[in-house]
Nucleic acid binder design. Structure first.
Lengths: 230, 230
DNA sequence: CCAAAAGTGTTCGAACTACACCCATGT
DNA sequence: ACATGGGTGTAGTTCGAACACTTTTGG
């Protein structure tokens, strides 16, 4: 392809590891799987894969995401690069971590089995291989920041969701409890949600109204110097 | 060294590129140099180097920093990984960007010549190779966030500095103008600066008092749930 | 004496926090 | 009828924003 400019240098394996986050009524979950190859075969691990030739690192991450969720174009953001010499017990591997947000209901169940994968509550993570626990911590802290200033949380919910659901989600992300009235006041002031006529009766007799995130409205507001903040 | 676990995979060159930032009375500057090898020899570029075997990516970055500043243990933080397939015109190289903050006065002048390096105001950057301009933008946005919540700005100043200097620095980082009285009020409230008896007369007849960042005090406050914020 | 930068407090409005009761309905 | 979660408004406080004059001193 091209001249060998950097002949005196050494090359490394590069992997993309994905912190796939989902939300299930009460808790944030991460998709883990039992590693299928040595070293540490059978141990819990993040979803990941090696970067292929001719593939950007973003592409590698989104390939991994598609492979193990069955969904294209998930929301995804880079967390950072992990490059300690001995982080991988096999050979030297430099890994780029990404986190992705997925609506667990859209999820293709069959793929779970196929990949030995399991949704695991963040509150009871098993021991993970290498530096994957650190990656998760870093991803969560990034999500916290991001969710406070950008409407990314909606990626974790179905298209139609209720305000109690949304609040519980934000409580899970921020690891704190929020005041119901203040939370709703803020949302109402931003005016980016669309109230539907339908109610969700799964979690109460009275039922909670469904809402939908109105992306068009949001994009319009952005143009006027509006900033999302929750 | 170890078994060849990942034999079917491909390896890549990995580089560490450093956005070395300095502050000079009025402006933020970045250290650029004229590339000494092909491709694009002679073009302006960030300081960087390939990751060596047995060297972590952080280590590679700090090696590059030491080599071209003559200073050890600079404040440094990872910006992220850049991995577009064609980002490097030579061969496929995945690059991890780091930004570093340095007091330009400490700087070893001789090294500038040795590396064809030059401090350049951010406001008049030349065209840079590859995606280095993007790296700088990303580094600055990261610095902005960081400086707002952690006392990292002091790394850009001499040990003794005046409040006007500090304010100009923050104005450069935030790209905005700050109110002198509000700025000083905040600083005074945080109580992490030590006022010295000495004055700097370089920029006014009256002279401005020197201050020093009191790290011990800051660390003590941290323990009590205090958060830096400017 | 005057130009030039350093230093210093108060007021106003916005945003956040805290807080308690009624509503709708399935059982 | 009652238990359960859904929904609503106000008052108090805190925090950030705006703002102008006096001080010092080298020239």
């Amino acid at each position: 392809m091209s001249a060998a400019f950097y002949q005196n240098e050494v090359t490394f394996f590069v992997a993309a590891d994905c912190i796939i986050l989902g939300f299930n009524d009460k808790d944030l979950n991460v998709l883990l799987h039992k590693r299928k190859f040595e070293p540490l075969e059978g141990e819990w691990s993040l979803m990941g894969g090696f970067v292929k030739p001719g593939e950007s690192i973003n592409k590698a991450a989104s390939r991994v995401l598609t492979e193990c969720t069955g969904i294209n174009n998930l929301f995804m953001e880079q967390v950072g690069a992990y490059g300690e010499v001995t982080r991988d017990l096999g050979e030297r591997v430099i890994s780029i971590a990404y986190y992705a947000l997925v609506n667990m209901n859209d999820f293709n169940i069959d793929l779970l089995e196929q990949y030995n994968a399991k949704w695991t509550r963040l509150s009871d993570l098993p021991k993970l291989i290498f530096d994957h626990e650190q990656m998760i911590r870093d991803a969560l802290s990034r999500l916290k920041r991001k969710a406070a200033t950008r409407p990314v949380g909606f990626n974790l919910l179905p298209e139609k969701f209720t305000l109690p659901q949304l609040q519980i989600l934000y409580e899970a992300i921020y690891q704190t409890v929020l005041d119901k009235r203040n939370f709703r006041k803020k949302l109402h002031a931003m005016d980016i949600l669309e109230k539907l006529d339908e109610k969700d009766k799964k979690s109460s007799k009275r039922g909670a109204f469904y809402y939908r995130f109105n992306k068009e409205k949001y994009d319009k507001l952005l143009g006027d110097g509006f900033y999302f903040s929750l």
